[in-house]
Nucleic acid binder design. Structure first.
Lengths: 96, 96
DNA sequence: AAATTTGGTTTATAAAATAAACTTGTTTAT
DNA sequence: ATAAACAAGTTTATTTTATAAACCAAATTT
Protein backbone atom coordinates (compact mmCIF):
# COMPACT_ATOMS: atom_id res chain seq x y z
CA UNK A 1 0.00 0.00 0.00
CA UNK A 2 2.67 2.50 0.96
CA UNK A 3 5.68 2.30 -1.31
CA UNK A 4 9.10 2.73 0.23
CA UNK A 5 10.39 6.27 -0.02
CA UNK A 6 13.95 6.55 -1.32
CA UNK A 7 15.76 7.61 1.86
CA UNK A 8 18.26 9.60 -0.12
CA UNK A 9 15.53 11.85 -1.38
CA UNK A 10 13.38 11.87 1.72
CA UNK A 11 15.43 14.61 3.32
CA UNK A 12 14.37 18.20 3.37
CA UNK A 13 17.60 19.66 2.07
CA UNK A 14 18.44 16.98 -0.46
CA UNK A 15 14.91 17.15 -1.78
CA UNK A 16 15.15 20.92 -2.15
CA UNK A 17 18.44 20.58 -4.00
CA UNK A 18 17.01 17.97 -6.32
CA UNK A 19 13.91 20.01 -6.84
CA UNK A 20 15.99 22.98 -7.94
CA UNK A 21 18.24 20.91 -10.15
CA UNK A 22 15.26 19.21 -11.75
CA UNK A 23 14.24 22.48 -13.32
CA UNK A 24 17.48 24.21 -14.05
CA UNK A 25 20.19 22.32 -15.93
CA UNK A 26 22.90 23.46 -13.53
CA UNK A 27 23.30 25.37 -10.29
CA UNK A 28 26.33 26.29 -8.26
CA UNK A 29 26.94 25.86 -4.56
CA UNK A 30 26.23 29.44 -3.55
CA UNK A 31 23.04 29.54 -5.54
CA UNK A 32 21.81 26.37 -3.88
CA UNK A 33 22.83 27.75 -0.53
CA UNK A 34 20.90 30.94 -1.09
CA UNK A 35 17.79 29.26 -2.44
CA UNK A 36 17.60 26.60 0.23
CA UNK A 37 18.72 28.73 3.14
CA UNK A 38 20.91 25.88 4.31
CA UNK A 39 24.21 26.28 6.10
CA UNK A 40 27.27 25.63 3.96
CA UNK A 41 28.27 22.65 6.03
CA UNK A 42 24.96 20.93 5.74
CA UNK A 43 24.76 21.64 2.03
CA UNK A 44 28.25 20.30 1.47
CA UNK A 45 27.40 17.05 3.22
CA UNK A 46 24.13 16.56 1.37
CA UNK A 47 25.69 17.30 -1.99
CA UNK A 48 28.26 14.62 -1.25
CA UNK A 49 25.52 12.12 -0.57
CA UNK A 50 23.65 12.92 -3.73
CA UNK A 51 26.91 12.64 -5.64
CA UNK A 52 27.79 9.32 -4.03
CA UNK A 53 24.36 8.05 -5.04
CA UNK A 54 24.98 9.10 -8.61
CA UNK A 55 22.01 11.45 -8.56
CA UNK A 56 24.04 14.55 -9.32
CA UNK A 57 27.47 15.41 -10.64
CA UNK A 58 29.74 18.06 -9.23
CA UNK A 59 32.16 20.05 -11.29
CA UNK A 60 34.79 22.13 -9.60
CA UNK A 61 36.25 25.12 -11.35
CA UNK A 62 36.85 28.79 -10.89
CA UNK A 63 34.83 31.88 -11.59
CA UNK A 64 37.60 34.41 -11.94
CA UNK A 65 39.85 33.46 -9.06
CA UNK A 66 37.17 32.20 -6.75
CA UNK A 67 36.37 28.53 -6.48
CA UNK A 68 33.06 27.49 -7.92
CA UNK A 69 31.19 24.24 -7.50
CA UNK A 70 28.60 23.45 -10.11
CA UNK A 71 25.96 20.77 -9.70
CA UNK A 72 23.91 18.96 -12.30
CA UNK A 73 21.33 16.25 -12.04
CA UNK A 74 22.13 12.97 -13.75
CA UNK A 75 19.62 10.83 -15.65
CA UNK A 76 19.67 8.43 -12.71
CA UNK A 77 18.83 11.34 -10.47
CA UNK A 78 15.96 12.37 -12.67
CA UNK A 79 14.56 8.90 -12.62
CA UNK A 80 14.91 8.57 -8.86
CA UNK A 81 13.34 11.96 -8.34
CA UNK A 82 10.42 11.06 -10.58
CA UNK A 83 9.85 7.81 -8.75
CA UNK A 84 10.06 9.52 -5.39
CA UNK A 85 7.45 12.05 -6.41
CA UNK A 86 5.18 9.27 -7.58
CA UNK A 87 5.64 7.31 -4.37
CA UNK A 88 4.98 10.35 -2.28
CA UNK A 89 1.73 11.02 -4.02
CA UNK A 90 0.51 7.67 -2.71
CA UNK A 91 1.01 8.92 0.81
CA UNK A 92 -0.61 12.24 0.21
CA UNK A 93 -3.56 11.02 -1.80
CA UNK A 94 -4.47 8.24 0.61
CA UNK A 95 -6.21 10.91 2.64
CA UNK A 96 -8.93 11.68 0.18
CA UNK B 1 11.00 29.58 -1.67
CA UNK B 2 11.08 26.24 0.09
CA UNK B 3 8.83 26.17 3.13
CA UNK B 4 10.02 24.28 6.15
CA UNK B 5 8.67 20.75 6.32
CA UNK B 6 7.22 19.80 9.70
CA UNK B 7 9.84 17.33 10.94
CA UNK B 8 7.22 15.39 12.81
CA UNK B 9 5.45 14.57 9.61
CA UNK B 10 8.49 14.25 7.40
CA UNK B 11 9.08 10.68 8.45
CA UNK B 12 8.07 7.73 6.36
CA UNK B 13 6.24 5.86 9.08
CA UNK B 14 4.62 8.82 10.80
CA UNK B 15 3.47 10.11 7.45
CA UNK B 16 1.96 6.76 6.58
CA UNK B 17 0.14 6.66 9.90
CA UNK B 18 -1.18 10.16 9.43
CA UNK B 19 -2.16 9.40 5.88
CA UNK B 20 -4.22 6.44 7.03
CA UNK B 21 -5.81 8.32 9.89
CA UNK B 22 -6.63 11.25 7.64
CA UNK B 23 -9.08 9.08 5.75
CA UNK B 24 -10.47 6.78 8.34
CA UNK B 25 -11.83 8.28 11.58
CA UNK B 26 -10.04 5.70 13.71
CA UNK B 27 -7.59 2.83 13.37
CA UNK B 28 -6.10 0.46 15.89
CA UNK B 29 -2.48 -0.47 16.45
CA UNK B 30 -2.60 -3.77 14.63
CA UNK B 31 -4.34 -2.30 11.64
CA UNK B 32 -1.73 0.41 11.37
CA UNK B 33 0.98 -2.18 11.76
CA UNK B 34 -0.45 -4.32 8.99
CA UNK B 35 -1.03 -1.44 6.60
CA UNK B 36 2.34 0.17 7.10
CA UNK B 37 4.39 -2.99 7.40
CA UNK B 38 6.26 -1.43 10.31
CA UNK B 39 7.66 -3.31 13.25
CA UNK B 40 5.65 -2.99 16.45
CA UNK B 41 8.50 -1.23 18.22
CA UNK B 42 8.93 1.40 15.59
CA UNK B 43 5.21 1.96 15.36
CA UNK B 44 4.89 2.30 19.11
CA UNK B 45 7.61 4.94 19.21
CA UNK B 46 6.20 6.94 16.32
CA UNK B 47 2.68 6.84 17.71
CA UNK B 48 4.09 8.25 20.93
CA UNK B 49 5.66 11.13 19.04
CA UNK B 50 2.50 11.93 17.16
CA UNK B 51 0.60 11.80 20.42
CA UNK B 52 3.10 14.04 22.19
CA UNK B 53 2.72 16.53 19.35
CA UNK B 54 -1.03 16.48 19.80
CA UNK B 55 -1.54 15.23 16.26
CA UNK B 56 -3.33 12.06 17.30
CA UNK B 57 -5.02 10.67 20.36
CA UNK B 58 -4.63 7.16 21.66
CA UNK B 59 -7.32 5.29 23.45
CA UNK B 60 -6.51 2.10 25.25
CA UNK B 61 -9.15 -0.49 25.84
CA UNK B 62 -9.92 -4.14 25.26
CA UNK B 63 -11.50 -6.04 22.44
CA UNK B 64 -12.79 -9.07 24.32
CA UNK B 65 -9.85 -9.88 26.55
CA UNK B 66 -7.13 -8.60 24.26
CA UNK B 67 -5.69 -5.14 24.63
CA UNK B 68 -6.55 -2.73 21.90
CA UNK B 69 -5.00 0.62 21.11
CA UNK B 70 -7.10 2.92 18.99
CA UNK B 71 -5.72 6.02 17.27
CA UNK B 72 -7.54 9.05 15.98
CA UNK B 73 -6.30 12.19 14.33
CA UNK B 74 -6.97 15.43 16.19
CA UNK B 75 -7.97 18.69 14.52
CA UNK B 76 -4.44 19.94 15.15
CA UNK B 77 -3.18 16.86 13.37
CA UNK B 78 -5.46 17.48 10.43
CA UNK B 79 -4.25 21.01 10.14
CA UNK B 80 -0.61 20.04 10.38
CA UNK B 81 -1.10 17.30 7.83
CA UNK B 82 -2.81 19.66 5.44
CA UNK B 83 -0.04 22.20 5.79
CA UNK B 84 2.59 19.57 5.30
CA UNK B 85 0.97 18.38 2.11
CA UNK B 86 0.81 21.94 0.84
CA UNK B 87 4.44 22.59 1.72
CA UNK B 88 5.53 19.41 0.07
CA UNK B 89 3.80 20.32 -3.14
CA UNK B 90 6.10 23.32 -3.36
CA UNK B 91 9.06 21.00 -3.43
CA UNK B 92 7.57 18.67 -5.98
CA UNK B 93 6.16 21.28 -8.30
CA UNK B 94 9.33 23.34 -8.45
CA UNK B 95 10.53 20.82 -10.99
CA UNK B 96 8.06 21.63 -13.72
C1' DA C 1 1.09 -27.25 31.40
C1' DA C 2 4.33 -26.02 27.99
C1' DA C 3 4.79 -23.59 23.81
C1' DT C 4 3.19 -20.06 20.87
C1' DT C 5 0.89 -15.95 19.67
C1' DT C 6 -0.97 -11.29 20.45
C1' DG C 7 -0.25 -6.70 21.51
C1' DG C 8 2.41 -4.08 22.73
C1' DT C 9 6.77 -1.21 25.51
C1' DT C 10 11.53 -0.30 26.61
C1' DT C 11 16.18 -0.12 25.61
C1' DA C 12 20.06 -0.17 22.54
C1' DT C 13 22.17 0.68 18.07
C1' DA C 14 22.75 2.73 13.65
C1' DA C 15 22.06 6.42 10.65
C1' DA C 16 20.97 11.37 9.63
C1' DA C 17 20.72 16.08 10.11
C1' DT C 18 22.68 20.05 11.73
C1' DA C 19 25.83 23.23 13.55
C1' DA C 20 30.32 24.71 14.85
C1' DA C 21 34.92 25.07 13.84
C1' DC C 22 38.40 25.07 10.53
C1' DT C 23 40.84 25.74 5.83
C1' DT C 24 42.32 28.02 1.77
C1' DG C 25 42.46 31.63 -0.72
C1' DT C 26 40.72 36.58 -2.07
C1' DT C 27 39.53 41.19 -1.57
C1' DT C 28 39.54 45.42 0.99
C1' DA C 29 41.13 48.75 4.17
C1' DT C 30 45.27 50.81 6.70
C1' DA D 1 52.68 45.39 2.82
C1' DT D 2 49.95 43.66 6.05
C1' DA D 3 46.17 42.98 8.84
C1' DA D 4 41.18 42.43 8.79
C1' DA D 5 37.24 40.82 6.73
C1' DC D 6 34.99 37.94 3.40
C1' DA D 7 34.06 33.91 0.08
C1' DA D 8 33.55 29.22 -0.75
C1' DG D 9 33.71 25.36 0.96
C1' DT D 10 35.23 21.02 4.00
C1' DT D 11 35.79 18.48 8.22
C1' DT D 12 34.58 17.22 12.66
C1' DA D 13 31.56 17.00 16.47
C1' DT D 14 26.95 17.12 18.49
C1' DT D 15 22.25 16.31 18.53
C1' DT D 16 18.29 14.19 16.79
C1' DT D 17 15.92 10.33 14.39
C1' DA D 18 14.86 6.03 12.83
C1' DT D 19 15.03 1.34 13.42
C1' DA D 20 15.66 -2.96 15.35
C1' DA D 21 16.31 -6.08 19.06
C1' DA D 22 15.03 -7.57 23.38
C1' DC D 23 11.68 -7.86 26.59
C1' DC D 24 6.99 -8.29 29.07
C1' DA D 25 2.27 -9.67 30.32
C1' DA D 26 -1.60 -11.85 29.15
C1' DA D 27 -4.19 -14.89 26.09
C1' DT D 28 -4.49 -18.85 23.12
C1' DT D 29 -3.24 -23.12 21.18
C1' DT D 30 -1.22 -27.88 21.31
Amino acid sequence: MFPKLDPLLHSELRLAVMSILAGVDEADFTYLKKQTGATAGNLSVQIDKLTAAGYITVEKGFKGKMPRTTCRMTPAGQEAFGKYVEALREYLSASK
